[in-house]
Design a protein around this nucleic acid. Structure first.
Lengths: 122, 122, 122, 122
DNA sequence: GTGGTCTAGACCACT
DNA sequence: GTGGTCTAGACCACG
């Protein structure tokens, strides 16, 4: 029931990241049905409109498919999932690198700091 | 003449990061005078109010000091600058790690990817 | 409908003081919702931007919390409110004492004068 | 030579307060000659224009008289000095009370706090 | 409807 | 000329 949202990032984006993470991680398998918008909204404690938007964007990203009257399902296109994984990774890293350089750090300094810090975060 | 702003982040935040980067990097030295609000605004192509806001926040962060009628100057408190450097580094890394984990990547996977991509960016 | 601003102090500061006063005084309770920026702006007769700035600074002072799309709320952290009360008191008194001494008065002379004048003001 | 100005109050006001304090305190006697604008400016480390303004306002307050080619002198009108003392006292106290009440403190609470703090400030 | 950002342009206080 | 405040009005992102 993770209702812990960072205050400086849109909730809907955090929810998207979370679901995408579940798909990448395999917590949500290809073809698996997602909870209904309303149900999920209640579970997480957000407005139904917000969750609606999350589902909509997931569909636009071709991560889910919506079947009328049945609900939303994780895509069965496994290639898409792998592709997605790479996209996210690329996106994450390049925006990280960009900030790093904007602030005047070197890549190697950051890497060694990352290695120290490792996975200590939850 | 850097008038290249990312569309998804507030301009004033990007400007703050840019100046903070200059201070961390040493492009702006302790005690050095910044351009006047209006001058910098013209240079970068934003409204003077926007730049004013940037300067005000920099002062609140204790990165600059404003002397009335004279302009804004980089703090001469070198310890503050070092501290700032660490803060930014920590902040950057922890938000990166957080996204990495939300998306279901492992730290080590990301690190090796980072090493590949290295400093190819400018 | 208090549209009575002193001419020599920024309006936004007077508004901050006013709201802080309300919080300290308990007129605004912990967790209570503030009027929306626009609504409050109209009520007091200032521009929405000015009020926006007031709300932003209140948030930076950790007196209010802003929940996106929902509005601003007085912090529920009662300790912060008590702390705030002490800060304001200290600040007020020390700047008073400083002026008193700069002008060559003694503390005791001022105190007895204060006692005379007492609470005659509203 | 006290070059310690508070950052949030105009320097010229602080200088006025300081000189008025000297007059009230008797450090500057009625009829005594003030340093020249330039000399005083150098001593205190401010711009000559700023000091010029200070002298001008002191004259408008009828605290000093300027005699052509001779300089500025503290008024010999002792009644004016006494009057001035009362004015400043009144002004100080009423603005203090006003802030106190705006922030929701009671006069008596502040008085007892003032008594505690006494003259510990320099 | 809510907060947040941005522009344009004016006016003031300070040095 | 410098920072600071304020208005007016527009537009966006979020819930």
């Amino acid at each position: 029931m993770g209702i812990d949202f960072l205050p400086d990032k849109p909730i809907y984006q955090q929810l998207i990241e979370r679901i995408v993470g579940d798909v990448i991680r395999g917590t949500l398998s290809p073809g698996e049905k997602l909870p209904s918008v309303r149900e999920y909204a209640v579970t997480v404690g957000v407005n139904a409109n917000t969750m609606q938007r999350v589902y909509k964007e997931l569909e636009q990203m071709e991560i889910t498919e919506t079947r009328r009257g049945q609900g939303s399902f994780v895509t069965e296109d496994v290639r898409r999932i792998v592709e997605l994984r790479d996209e996210m990774k690329e996106q994450l890293v390049s925006s990280f690198i960009q900030s790093v350089e904007a602030l005047g750090f070197t890549a190697s300094e950051m890497i060694s700091y990352l290695q120290e810090r490792g996975g200590e975060n939850d």
